[in-house]
Write a protein that binds this DNA or RNA. Structure first.
Lengths: 107, 107
DNA sequence: CAGGATCCAGTGCGATACTG
DNA sequence: CAGTATCGCACTGGATCCTG
């Protein structure tokens, strides 16, 4: 982790390792929490995470898209307008994050 | 990241980020699963994770100890004998990992 | 046997500049 | 405005050696 991916995978392809991989990334939790409040454009996410580089945000957003956690809606206009939002699977992931949150409170 | 720690922390000190940090590390999930089956000595954990370096294992074990997830029992004999086992908090963490595991199955 | 010290490689991310 | 390319650093973990 960074998160983080095991180079030599476990013998049993491990589901919890997959989940961990999906949410590992410096800004992913923050991005997911913000998208859980509602659809966002990149510039909004940049504003909320003013310390993050654009490079990191776009990279992590594209990973989340690949993993089916969030989706893009490209309006194909100029200047560009693209909106990000949680998928159904992404909303399920939020409930998982709430479990992490509960546990984290006692740490 | 790898897991992994955010250098510039979130404004709100985020519990789920803490939990994620505690379980982020190349061998931590595997270690926790093995310790969940029962008390282990370092040499056993090395055997189960034959591809892991001793350095990585001891470092991650010590982090888990620091975070109150596992505990050491040092028999203070020679040659050394030290046993690792889950704490009460560690056992609670296992239930969290089961949630990650469930979610991971649909990925 | 437990585990620390040193050196090295891979990589995630920040800063910045650029394009359509 | 969204997204990419380049450069450079810092951090994690691997390999190896050494100690009590």
């Amino acid at each position: 982790m960074g998160t983080y991916t095991r180079k030599t995978p476990l013998k049993i392809d491990c589901p919890m390792e997959k989940t961990l991989h999906v949410i590992s990334g410096k800004w992913k939790l923050a991005l997911l929490c913000e998208l859980n409040r509602g659809t966002c454009r990149l510039k909004d996410l940049e504003k909320y995470n003013s310390e993050a580089s654009k490079r990191a945000l776009t990279k992590q957003l594209s990973e989340l898209v690949e993993d089916g956690i969030i989706q893009k809606k490209d309006y194909e206009v100029y200047p560009k307008k693209v909106e990000y939002s949680l998928t159904a699977r992404g909303k399920e992931l939020i409930t998982v994050l709430e479990v992490l949150d509960e546990f984290g409170k006692q740490l």
